[in-house]
Design a protein around this nucleic acid. Structure first.
Lengths: 333, 333
DNA sequence: GTATGGACTGTTAGCGCTCACAGTCTGTTA
DNA sequence: TAACAGACTGTGAGCGCTAACAGTCCATAC
């Protein structure tokens, strides 16, 4: 309980506080014998550096912020795992912020991050207003966008090509012979949903079909339950030959509703999802999906961020755009 | 970029730095007119308090740590959501640590948390060595155990009764008429797996069966893939009438393997999982499971922790033990 | 006019650490 | 022997903020 400080360590090891600070931060600069003595003192006294004092004096912290839209979504969980792994390898702590889709909550979280003077922020923005992020940069906090294209050139961003993903998914359905396709989507306020839709229409056009014939069923949330409901609507209206869902949760819901209604997948209706979450492969009719390099997204974004922090002059901003990959399984066989 | 400090705000508003600090921390103590002037200055200058300086001087931060075993597991994700919600309501930031089941990594994470002088730590411990946690207490950091019984009386803990859960799950299977039961479990180094097993055996005994007849199939990980493999082994050895899985991921794997082998669920084999993750309800044969108040676990643990921080003298340590709840679905109908 | 008290506001001394710089000490060279 | 370089180590200022305390000012009472 007796808060042991660098001074206590110094006294115990018979050196000056500056030397203790050196063994902590620049161990090469201190004679091996001294270093060992200091390290022994640190162990004996159970000294732990006071991060705030260090941050205050040094002018920067060893902390980054991660702001995601929904920590309950396996997609973001995997991103977070990638972030956490890289950060922890490099001795950085991660402060987690969950915006839950609310721009207000996101703003509050960003404020907390700014107060902590985090070194940088990884964010999948909820809103489309870049000004809020520019404010962070005003505090010397670097920002890297995750699963979102860059707002500006002097900024890193790591994204996945959602238009290409939508195109590939629907092209796959059409290649199987389907001539009528429905797109079950989440709210069309979500950029990803819109772009996947664009891609889907492009694929229709490329196959000589009218893009306007794509049946779009918009669900309120991107959950399995919403998918079941959407499927019920489709059944009522008359089923298409194939269904493309904006994520796997929706697709699992659709799959379940179809099977219960006696519709065979893929014989009667082919089905493809998006994200390739673990459960896609594990469902009873295994689900075709568009795989995204989710964990890599987190890893690379973090590497870019920490490089930007470590080498502000030489750092080259990058806009990385991954291509999603088709994973064909039973549901489109 | 020009780091605006409390001093700049003071100068701009024509008051002293102490007054600015007062409007930040004790707004009641300052005259309304002055307060407004200061607040205007804060807005105009875009001032954001330097959290590290504040922490250093005040002696405590507004940050808590959360250390979980696997952020990829929906169970922990939901816990994290509960933690994040409460923390954010009270203006606390959450530093996330993922131990990935490694005691070493957990130790590293705890060290980072100690350096940050977090106010407290919420942890689902990987190892069973309480000494490591006691070291945190030595730095004045409160610890609340999550999904784990308390190590000591002067400590809060929030857990779920895993023995009762195992008992209820198997009792449910036996009540359906099953007379032979297999338990598909994760590594038996995991406390939860062991206790659910104990519960399962207790239920056998209570039904007049020999607890030693419980067939225990231990999988290397708690994933769907491991569940499939375990099911293949069971099929090879001869199927029991019912299967209890230590979590839903295992159960989904078992379900898939059984259906593919032409085994009907629940007609030929009844199946129950544990955790009641979203996908349990969404699987093709919907999965019976033991529901745990996961989100509440996170919320309540955080509330206890922050109460302990806010009222160290009056705070009463609590050991809360939730009871899991049986959710019967098609797989045990 | 003086005393008194209440309501604010200003002053000040660090919190624990880092970093630039100034010292010291040893061994080497002219 | 004196000068000097090289290798460490000590010194000290201060990062931005808070909280205790010491003013200041005005209204009221005597």
């Amino acid at each position: 309980m007796a808060m042991v400080s660098i001074k206590d360590v110094a006294a115990h090891a018979g050196v000056s506080p500056g030397t203790v600070s050196n063994v902590l931060n620049r161990p090469g600069k201190v004679a091996p014998a001294t270093r060992e003595r200091v390290e022994a003192a640190i162990d004996e006294l159970g000294f732990v550096r006071h991060g705030s004092a260090s941050t205050l004096r040094a002018g920067h912290s060893r902390t980054i912020g991660l702001s995601v839209i929904d920590i309950g979504n396996p997609f973001f969980t995997e991103v977070a795992a990638g972030v956490e792994d890289v950060a922890s390898e490099l001795g950085y702590a991660v402060i987690l912020g969950n915006s839950a889709g609310s721009v207000d909550k996101e703003d509050r979280n960003l404020r907390v991050l700014a107060e902590h003077r985090v070194r940088g922020v990884l964010i999948t923005p909820s809103g489309e207003d870049p000004a809020r992020l520019d404010r962070l940069r005003g505090h010397g906090i670097s920002v890297v966008l995750v699963d979102h294209p860059a707002h500006r050139p002097d900024q890193c961003a790591v994204a996945v090509d959602d238009v290409a993903g939508g195109r590939a998914a629907v092209a796959h359905l059409l290649a199987r012979g389907a001539r009528s396709v429905a797109y079950v989507t989440g709210p069309l306020t979500i950029r990803q949903c819109v772009e996947r839709c664009e891609g889907a229409k492009a694929a229709m056009g490329a196959a000589g079909l009218d893009p306007g014939d794509l049946v779009v069923a918009e669900a309120a949330t991107m959950t399995a339950r919403a998918g079941e409901k959407a499927a019920a609507d489709l059944i009522a209206k008359g089923l298409p030959e194939a269904v493309f869902c904006a994520n796997d949760l929706l697709a699992l819901g659709v799959l379940r509703a179809l099977l219960r209604s006696g519709v065979r997948v893929p014989e009667d209706v082919a089905l493809i999802g998006y994200d390739d979450i673990d459960f896609a492969a594990a469902s009873t009719v295994s689900l075709s999906s568009m795989r995204q390099p989710t964990y890599q997204l987190g890893r690379i974004a973090t590497e870019l961020l920490l490089d930007e922090c470590a080498n502000p002059e030489t750092h080259a901003h990058q806009h990385i755009m991954f291509q999603p990959e088709l994973v064909a399984r039973e549901s489109t066989q």
